[in-house]
Every structure is written in C-alpha cells, then in structure tokens.
Design a protein around this nucleic acid. Structure first.
Lengths: 153, 153
DNA sequence: GTTGAAACAGAGACAGA
DNA sequence: TCTGTCTCTGTTTCAAC
C-alpha cells in the first residue's frame, strides 16, 4: 500500500519530534485526530516507523571521540564472518556498520570516551576477529550533521 | 552535574524506546515515578536528551540506495566553506556529514531513491560547490547496524 | 521524595458518509 | 471502507505536603 500525502506528512513531523500529540498532528495535516491516530498506528504496524528513540548528546555523557573505521577482511575465511558481524552488533561503541563496495569491506562509526578507549576497542576487535587483514581509521574532527531521518518527498 | 546511576539507566532505556511510560521507567530503575519524571525533565533541560524522534525504515519509503561519500576540497578557497556546509545541512538526502582527518576532508552518508537519484545529487553538489576538488563514493551493499544510541556505562 | 488532583493523550466502540 | 465523535482508561503534569 502506497503512502498517502498524510502519511508522508506524519513521517516528516514524527522524524523531527516524536512527542507531537495526535491533536497537533491532526492540525498540521488538516485531518482529524482519530485519522492521525489510525494512520500512525498503521505506519507502526507496517514497520514504516520502526521505533521511537531519544537522541542523546554524546558530549554530555563523556563520549568525545568519533572514528570512521574501514576494515578489510580475509576473503578465504568465510566461517569467521558471522562472529565478526555479531561482534559489530553487540558492541555498543559501534554505532553504525556497513558492508561497502570500494576500498574497505566494512565501514564502521565508532564512538568512544577517548583515544585510549578507542585504542582498546580496536585491540579487542583485532583480538576477537583474526580474519581482519587490516583497518584504517579517520578521526572525526567535527560532526556537521547527524540524523537517521529519511527524506519523504 | 554528573549523571547518577538512575540517569544512566533512564538514558539507556529511552534510547531503546522513548515511548516507555514513567511508571515503567520507575519500575526498571527501582525509583518512584515522580523521581523518574524529574530526572527525565532535567535530562531534557540540560540537553542531555536532545529530542525524541521516530526511526523510519528507508526501504519502506522508497529510499533504497545508501552511499558513503568522501569529499576533498580546495584548500585555498576558504570563503566557499560556509556555503558547502550549509548545503550539507540543508540537503535532506545527506543524513550524516563529518569533517575527518585522513584521506577525504569530508565524509558523508547520503540516502537516495536510486542510483540515478544519487547521481543527480552528486551533480548538484559539484555544481553548487566549485571548491570540491574530487570525491569518491562507496556503495552500501548491506547495513548491519545503524543507531545514534550512545553507550552510557 | 511522595501523594493527590486536574489536565491530557491514546485506544476503542460506534454511527454516518 | 474511511471518517469523525464520543467515552473510557491510563498517563503526565503540577502543586502541596
């Protein structure tokens, strides 16, 4: 089922501020509150909206160092892939992880308390995952933008 | 003011699911609901919690192509930097943008409807920002993990 | 830090288009 | 089937203790 104009408007607003009330949602979309409620419920049911989360300022909780990490793996040890992926998913300092074409096989966003902490994490990663051939890191000097919001036109 | 054990617990829970009620928050932290309410309010006031947002599944709204883009700029045209940064912030397909050490000056996460759409965006980026010396793109083949959640130990 | 009252939002039932 | 109204229930907010 395709998204209606109202659905898209709801998604846009909810991605900006999920604490908006049904009344406000109704007002902004020009529909009734119960309409907004039904559409919102359906968007959740259909997993268009996956979840609502609080966004925390890393600096306010002592997480000061972001790193972009490109990891290259041994291609001939496929049996070590699942443990590596599990490590990525389970390690809370790993915020994002993609399989990419191009230079690195994997690209990670890692958030640590300090350079020392990051170093420990990198050591642990190498230790636990012997299939890592090499990895390169870029220090994030400045974060200009950070959102998971998807543009719905 | 440092974070209490309760604050950290609240942040952990709210980053997983911001629709949790004060009652549940109280139960999980072993404190009273009004305590949870006051701590939560303070976390918002202090901008530890920046905002609450819905997380939307990109695939469900027709955004199928993620790209990691490394942009290298002309160093001798500092006057063109602010417009470039404004473009990054204003372009909704740009989800993330970091200034990094290492190869690329800037690293972007771009989410587009299709490869063609991404190509248009890249063209527009080059057109609007004559200080871009070159850029390289990596196609995201698979997203293993994607969160803004900050680990609070 | 706790309690209680008032305001409010959300979920479901229902009727009409 | 989709829309809006109504009502009940649970939640949040705020003030007083």
């Amino acid at each position: 089922m395709p998204l209606t104009k109202m659905d898209r408007e709801i998604l846009k607003l909810m991605q900006q501020d999920a604490t908006i009330t049904l009344g406000e949602l109704a007002h902004r979309t020009g529909q009734s509150a119960s309409s907004a409620q039904r559409r919102l419920q359906k968007l959740r049911e259909d997993k268009v909206i996956l979840r609502d989360v609080s966004v925390v300022d890393p600096k306010k909780v002592g997480a000061n160092v972001s790193m972009l990490v490109e990891v290259e793996l041994e291609r001939d040890r496929p049996e070590l892939l699942p443990p590596f992926m599990r490590w990525l998913v389970e390690t809370p300092e790993v915020q994002e992880a993609w399989v990419t074409s191009g230079r690195g096989d994997y690209t990670l966003v890692v958030l640590a308390r300090s350079v020392e902490h990051f170093d420990e994490l990198a050591d642990r990663m190498m230790e636990l995952n012997p299939n890592i051939r090499k990895f390169t890191t870029s220090v994030v000097l400045k974060t200009l933008k950070r959102t998971l919001a998807v543009h719905v036109e």
